[in-house]
Structures are given as structure tokens and as C-alpha cells.
Amino acid sequence: MAAPEPKHWTEKLQSFDRRWIFLAMGFAIVLPLLFPINLPIKPSPMVQAGFYTVEALQPGDVVFVSVDLEPASTPELEPYFRSVMLQLKRKNVKLVIATTWYAAPPLVERWIREMIENPIAPEGTPGYTAPLDADGKPMYDRAYKKNEDYVWLGFREGKAAVISGLGSDLRGTFDNRAADGTPLDAIPIMNGKKQLKDFKLLVLISAGFPGIKEYVQQVQSRYNLRMVGATTAVSTTDLAPYYQAGQLLGLSGGLAAAAEYETMVGKPGLATQAADVLNVSHLVVILAIVFGNFIFFVGRRRKARR
């Protein structure tokens, strides 16, 4: 019996152990964190639009923030949350925060303790220059007080229904109480706030369903709400038509956009550091596509010749 023909290198490569690719990806993620590259970041038009919409708010305005995410999406969304909170707090904008995801509350409560009840970038923060107000004084953010500067309403389940409920009866949806049990009537910043349309702006930070899409469907068009949002990279292409149609006034999609937002706010953070990981890991995926196709075509041509 004839000896089996040795495998051509293209055949060997097409079926080689995928764990080598996992290892390459692992290095692509770890090495840039140890050896930063620090490429410059230029904000895209969608991110700029969102930034300028928030920047147009006035001190004392009340904004509704919906944080709909889980720990898996924090690398893409926490940097945006941190940046937009810095931007809102240094303008002394009041915050009403809620969530429609069951996995979010402990995460949001931790972020409130770290970023809202403490200043994010107080005076003297290295590498940070606060913007100037109309009188030429630098605007620093400060520690916000619970139920005076911000309200944490908590979590309510219900997907699209709860969002529809927020649009028509926000107080009833949260049973007229904040998450700590304080009656909403006793909280000054909730005066006159009965529906989402009573807020100057909605800031939506969403990782999937329910999220920005459901807010646009259920309440944006019906009540003509002003909304800006941040989402994961995977959902950006889905939500871009809403931005183009004017239903969203700004959209930050993924880690790269979060890094752009950090640049605009003036305090580079986690997203800017992780942008290097993005560079290298994208390169790995591109090389995998190109190399995989190269092997495929060489193998196909060899088979055609035989």
C-alpha cells in the first residue's frame, strides 16, 4: 500500500490548533497594557455632537440618566459614564439616575459612591485642566449630596413596558420613592418631574436590550425627548440610523468612542489606556482574516492545478 501523501502546508495550517490564535489574542490584550503606545485620539462627529449637547446644559438643569448595563460591558461604558459625570458635575447639573437592568444596581451604587458622592477631578488633579466658566473661573466638580444634587431611583424590571411607564408616569413606576425609601415629594430636584419629558436631557448608557433602542421607540418620538447615548461597539451600527435621523443627539459607540469622549472632556482615563489594546487586538483579527484567506486561496489554486 502506498504511503499517504504528506499534507501540504496550507492543509496543515487550515486545521491547526486554534489555541495558538487564543494565545496570540491573549498577548495582544496584555502586552499593550504593559507597554503603552499612546497614539493620538481624534473625536468623531457623533461623539462631538453628544459632547456639545451635554455641554449646552446650564447649572441647575436636571438630567435623567439611565444606566442599563452589566459587569461585562463596563470596559466600554464605565469610561463614558465617568467622563459624562465629570462633565455634568462641573456644570452643577442635577442628576436623576435609574436602571432597567437587574444586573446593574450594585454596579451603579458603587459608581455613585466613587464618582458622584466624591469629586472625580478636583482641583490639583495631575494632568487635568478644568474648563473656564463665563467669568473665567475654572469649573471643578465636587462631591454631590444624595437627594440634593442627585437621586438614585433604583431598578425596575419590565423591558419596553417599564420605559413606556417612565414616559407616562415616572413617579408611579418608582412608587413615588427613591431607592433609599425617601419619598420623591421630599426631594427638591424632583419637583415638577413626573414624566421623562420634564427633564432637560436624557443620558442613556446601554449595553443591549432594553436600552437606547427601546427608549427611542417607546418615548423619544412620542414625547419629543432630547437624548444622547453611549452603547457597546456591537450595537453602534444598529443605533447609528437613529442619530442620523435626529432621534439621538449624540452617540458614543464602544471603547474607541469612550476614549474620544474622555479626550473631549479633558481627562483621559481607562478608555484611553485601553485604546492601545484595541489597536493591537484589531491588528490580530485583521492578520487572522488576511492570513486565513491567503492560505485558503493558495490551497484552492493548488487543488485546481492538480
Binding site: I21, F22, S281, V285, I289, G292
Partner: peptide, 10 residues
């Protein structure tokens, strides 16, 4: 992330 890279190659 790892499975995307593997899928990209294969």
C-alpha cells in the same frame, strides 16, 4: 474576543 479571532482565521 478569543473566539472572534479564531473565527476570523478559520
Amino acid at each position: 474576543a478569543f473566539f472572534v479571532a479564531s473565527a476570523a482565521f478559520r
